[in-house]
Amino acid sequence: MKLLKVENVSMIFGGLTAVKEFNLELNQGEIVALIGPNGAGKTTAFNVITGVYTPTIGHVSYKEKNITGQRPDQITKQGIARTFQNIRLFKDLSVLDNVLIANHLHLKSNFLEATFKLPRYRREEKQILEKSLNLLEKVGLKDAQGEKASSLPYGKQRRLEIARALATNPTILLLDEPAAGMNPKETDDLTEFIRQIRDDFKLSIFMIEHHMQVVMGISDRIIVFDYGVTIAEGNPYEIQNNQKVIEAYLGVAEDYA
């Protein structure tokens, strides 16, 4: 079964076509990368899948159910979580609170039960706390649980953002440039980390990334965007040798002739 299916999606803002006829099929356990020069419409494609934008044309379906036009929170609730290109943590809240908040969507107690600390809420709160601490331990942030999210070093903030997304119990994780601004050592760790969470949490991952080292290292398939158009799709080897991709990234050589 295709987990996520994007069919013929176009996103048009006024006179600008940010994404044109985008298609994607994501299978269980796959890691697919979306690459392309700056301004190619990669984040727009993400925003269409996560419900920030409703596509002008086309549909998005998840587990064969049409999710086009649903709100971001509804989409997250069904199992698609994301991170952001420019980290969007709850900066003034603690590391633990950041993860706890991501558990709120599955809370069954209403606000009165929560205010008066009725048994069902207390039981749920206990589970949430246990689960969050486990998660922080898995991503290596347990010691920092009491710290303000904004006080963490950059690499750890990225990890916390992924942990927070994992706390929503996703089956699909969308990562928007997870390696941006990382040094080579951090990049290596991240590659390993992404593989590990894919296996531990049985995820399918769709990511935007510029670091070719990361992309080529872990992707099963790669999609290349240029000016909103898909110019190539294939495994890392095919993409590395695709003439159109090389042209999009490096320009055409005719000027030197």
Partner: peptide
């Protein structure tokens, strides 16, 4: 005080901190 320290209170603070992130974390704004 009790409401603020519950899961709902955390959701409120999340909305205050960053609406877009809160919504992406499944909070119905």
């Amino acid at each position: 005080g009790s409401l603020i320290n519950s899961s709902y209170g955390r959701a409120f603070k999340a909305i205050r901190e960053d609406e877009i992130a809160a919504e992406s974390m499944g909070i119905n704004l």
